[in-house]
Design a protein around this nucleic acid. Structure first.
Lengths: 252, 252
DNA sequence: CGGAGCTTTGATCTTCCTCAAAAACTGTGG
DNA sequence: CCACAGTTTTTGAGGAAGATCAAAGCTCCG
């Protein structure tokens, strides 16, 4: 039950390569997702400190990353791929509470033990920190502490939006909201807003939206039939009319 | 649309009485809910500072307190009564995202504009702060900043639990979870865990649990019939078997 | 090329919603 | 203290969205 990747030797670790190019010695400084990550607020010196406590990991699709109720030994920053966070009921019913992508932090609402589980959707890369190490750094760094509060605040806002979705939206509205959220996220990151990459399975989408796989599939079929979306190869989905989609998402 | 109590002259304001007893001059120091509130972490001097930016309000049942998408001018700390937070869809569907009680802080996930609305469930008392004032104080006070992060973290955990409830629990499980949550909260505050005070209407409970008023009522009736709960006068609900209730809540 | 795992589609069923009306409460004024 | 009007809660009947059960297509890899 504790055979987590978190426990294993990292597949990829930058530290053995230290002492060569600046990029090698300071991978954080040249990190491609730093401006999306909590560490964007740190200066060179602070990055050095961060680097001294980080381990870089690469995990395959479906790899478990943390398990609810296990001691919260590690926190993570996602640098590539997608991660799903979820909670389970005793009989196996699952609620995915969020998806994390490059730049997202994993471990904000953490006590002594993890309060949810996390698993890689596809191949993913992560920065791993010992909780104590990172907490220490946050305690002694006002910028970092402010950044954490800001992240928690954003997460909370997203969670409230998701509660509205789960409690009050129809299947169609849920799915349209989901697509719009992915699209807007891509846009914020400077990617195209329309063919969007949707790496998660129908089952994952269902467990995120409070629906079954079958209902997700049927609703996708309806949206295709009505010309709202077009499925493309490689898990890409083309959104034909963003404004229409947004209206559907908001129940108009 | 902006006829909020927040805009009006406070019904009750401690400042005019200043200059008399210590309790008057330092109401914060003698506040009965301080150890439940974010300000429990402040020393006497800091309390003075806090006091210089606070206004005390009393609002009647159903009074609107903040409105989603209005400029976020004020933040609040609840000192008495109950407050509901909610989001609306265009056609009036409502999702209550949380209830606040004495000691709870209102305004954690706040941007320039409010991201949800809030309204008093019953007569309530509040400490009101200008957002800028409080943010200033938080920025210059590590204890306060840490406290805010901790509160945000707790909120987030509760939100995730609520997502599990909304997405994956049955009506009976939802209602039992709701009662258990209220009971545990009361217990944490040193109150009895069993006859619990449930001031909100069936409609409010429904909008919190993603159900209709009728389903809430029917489910209450079933729980009464099965001897799980007993409704008492004054909105009190007696929980006959906490363990059984908890099992129902978790889907066992 | 083959097979395991997704996804889609179909048929049927269940839970919860909707609409409607009666019953119980709440507060107010006489 | 009681009567009454408005509101909230409860109960009932019927309906609909989405779940469940089942099976057929697809995909993607090895």
């Amino acid at each position: 039950m504790s055979a987590n990747v978190a426990d294993k030797t990292p597949v990829f670790d930058a530290s053995p390569n230290a002492g060569e190019s600046l990029a090698r010695r300071h991978p954080c400084a040249s990190c491609s997702v730093r401006d999306l990550s909590f560490c964007h607020c740190l200066d060179t010196e602070e990055l050095d400190e961060l680097e001294s406590i980080v381990t870089h990991l690469e995990v395959p699709a479906r790899a478990p990353i943390i398990d609810e109720s296990e001691p919260a030994e590690f926190l993570f920053n996602v640098t590539g791929g997608a991660i799903k966070l979820y909670k389970l009921l005793a009989d196996g019913r699952r609620q995915i509470t969020g998806f994390l992508f490059a730049g997202d932090f994993l471990g904000i609402a953490m006590k002594e033990n993890y309060v949810y589980s996390a698993e890689a959707v596809n191949k993913a890369t992560l920065c791993r920190f010992r909780r104590g190490d990172l907490e220490n750094m946050v305690d002694n760094n006002a910028k970092l502490s402010k950044e954490m509060l800001s992240m928690a605040s954003n997460e909370l806002e997203m969670a409230q939006e998701q509660m509205l979705l789960l409690g009050r939206k129809t299947a169609k509205e849920k799915l349209c909201s989901f697509l719009m959220t992915l699209s807007k996220r891509a846009q914020r990151r400077g990617e195209a807003s329309s063919p969007i990459f949707v790496p998660m399975s129908r089952a994952d989408i269902g467990d995120y939206l409070g629906l079954t796989t079958e209902t997700v599939s049927r609703t996708f079929t309806n949206l295709k039939r009505d010309g709202v979306i077009r499925l493309q190869e490689g898990s890409m989905i083309h959104l034909n009319d963003m404004e229409e989609l947004d209206d559907f998402a908001e129940g108009n």
